Amino acid sequence: MSAKVFETKDVQDLLKAAANLNGGSGNARFQQIVHRLLGDLFKAIDDLDITPDEVWAGVNYLNKLGQDGEAALLAAGLGLEKYLDIRMDAADKAVGLEGGTPRTIEGPLYVAGAPLREGVSRIDVNPDADAGPLVIHGTVTDLDGKPLAGAVVECWHANSKGFYSHFDPTGAQDDFNLRGAVKTGADGKYEFRTLMPVGYGCPPQGSTQRLLDGLGRHGNRPAHVHFFVSSDNSRKLTTQFNIEG
């Protein structure tokens, strides 16, 4: 095993210099975060005796991750987004905010600007012979069950091939296929008329799946639909549901 060097003055001085911690310029919050994360990495190298070959394999992996454009996908796949949800749930509970629809991760494939309609929106812009119809409807209420008028419900999901519009490598979908937004009326009701999505996996040759393979994990997700719900007098809700089967 290599010698332990993390606690030495040389390493601690290196960390401060790398983050410009006492440099008198730069963004103090950014410096604080870089100093901590870099320190955690240095300590992990020390504690786990990570070899130079393993370090450079990690650096090369990050290069490939960027080339694949999968950093956000990896954040979801490794539980980073879920951890943020857990922290926000705990913060809510600490100040007595409980109840309502649970928050769930946004994922990396939301696109702003979907058409906004009143009450009902048909979002299957492109025909899909392999997908049957799906109607999603409900009521937006406050925690007391009172309908919220003027709330905006945004919805997005994949097609029968597991691809989202804007991110479809086949180019088969219009920009806002299977994406839409509805503003609720006085009754708080919304409805989306769409097509049934399917489950899908990470790109099989991509960097995220490569990492999951190394962990012995699959990269598959069940069919699901994403939502944002926002209102002038309420906090924004980010959630989704999985489709049984």
Rank of each mutant, 00 (worst) to 15 (best):
S2I: 03
T8P: 01
Q12R: 13
K16P: 06
N22E: 04
N22L: 08
A28K: 08
L37I: 09
L41H: 07
K43P: 07
A44G: 01
L48A: 13
P52H: 07
G58E: 05
V59G: 01
L62M: 15
G77I: 02
L80G: 07
K82Q: 15
Y83E: 12
I86C: 01
M88T: 14
M88F: 12
G96N: 08
L97M: 11
G100F: 03
L109Q: 12
A112T: 13
P115L: 12
L116D: 04
E118G: 06
E118M: 14
G119A: 14
D124E: 13
P133E: 06
H137T: 13
T139A: 02
T139Y: 00
L143V: 03
V153Q: 02
E154R: 10
G162Q: 02
G162Y: 11
F163T: 00
D168N: 14
T170F: 12
D175F: 12
F176A: 06
G180W: 00
A181N: 11
V182T: 02
K189S: 13
M196D: 05
M196G: 04
Q205F: 08
R210C: 00
L211P: 03
L212F: 14
L212W: 04
R221W: 13
P222C: 07
H226P: 07
F228V: 09
V229R: 11
K236A: 14
T239W: 06
I243C: 08
E244M: 12
